[in-house]
Each structure stands twice: as C-alpha cells, then as structure tokens.
Amino acid sequence: MAGLELKYAVPSAEEDFLGAGEASTSVKKKLRQIGYNPEAVRKVAIAMYEGEINMAIHAGGGEAEVEILPQSVTIKLIDHGPGIADVEKAMQEGWSTAPEEVRSLGFGAGMGLPNMKKYTDTMDIETEVGKGTTITMVVNAQ
C-alpha cells in the first residue's frame, strides 16, 4: 500500500534552538509534493511544530516518526525527558512550566498541548515522570 515513513532527530532547545522546527517544515514540503489536501497539511504543520518545540524546550529533544498514508498522517514524538506530571493540567490553555527566557521569545504561553489537540483528529499521550513522553497524533486527510 502507498505510504511514506520518515524519521527525524529533534535537537534540544539549548543546543540548537533554530533546529527545532526543521522536521515539521520538511514534512510540510513532502506533503505538498505528494499532493496532500492543503488543509490537512496546515494542521500537520501547526501540530507538529508545536510538538517539536515542546520536546526541544521541555525534554531536551527527542525523535519524530511520521507515517504518511493516503488517508491520514500519524506523527509520533518520542522523548526521554522529565515526563508530564499532570496531563490534565498540561492540557489546559495557558498552563505552562516554561522558564522565563523561553517565554520572552514568545514560546511557552501554555498553548502547546491544547493547540496540538485542536489541530489533530486524535491525540494520545503516554508519559511517565522521570522516563519520558510519547505523543501520537493523527490528522486525517479529509
């Protein structure tokens, strides 16, 4: 069956702040080349960018695995960071643990996870404090 699997390493914000975001830009370009529905491409770009930045800021980077199928795009973001202690709280708009220097750059407004959920059809969070977090998001083509 037609499909495409992509893997990216997402750097930590401390070592390469500008590098965070490159994976979502690359996925966006590939989806356009495949001829994917523009609205779905936009959702993938927004949700994946948020996820990448989250990983870079809070978890010291991680991996992004993307599976593109004709009917949907699945984005898996895997990190080995501190984990999320209270997922319910983290899902509230405006709730943030981002340090001040990150907020001053316009990030860490507490919209990361809520936005990721808003722009995806399903979102699943597996997390364990001290071990890491895996977020799986699916955006349907239609």
Binding site: A2, L4, L6, K29, R32, G35, I68, P70
Partner: peptide
C-alpha cells in the same frame, strides 16, 4: 487559485512511490 507545481504526480499513489524513491 492554487497552482500545485511542486506536486510530483496527479496520481497520489504514484506520488507516494516517487517520494519513497527520492528518499
């Protein structure tokens, strides 16, 4: 109007195949 000049193929299955070959 959107002019999708970056699109690899009109047929999405073929586009997937081409994308895999490119990678």
């Amino acid at each position: 109007e959107y002019t999708p000049v970056m699109k690899l193929s009109e047929d999405i299955n073929e586009a997937f195949t081409m994308m895999n070959e490119i990678e």
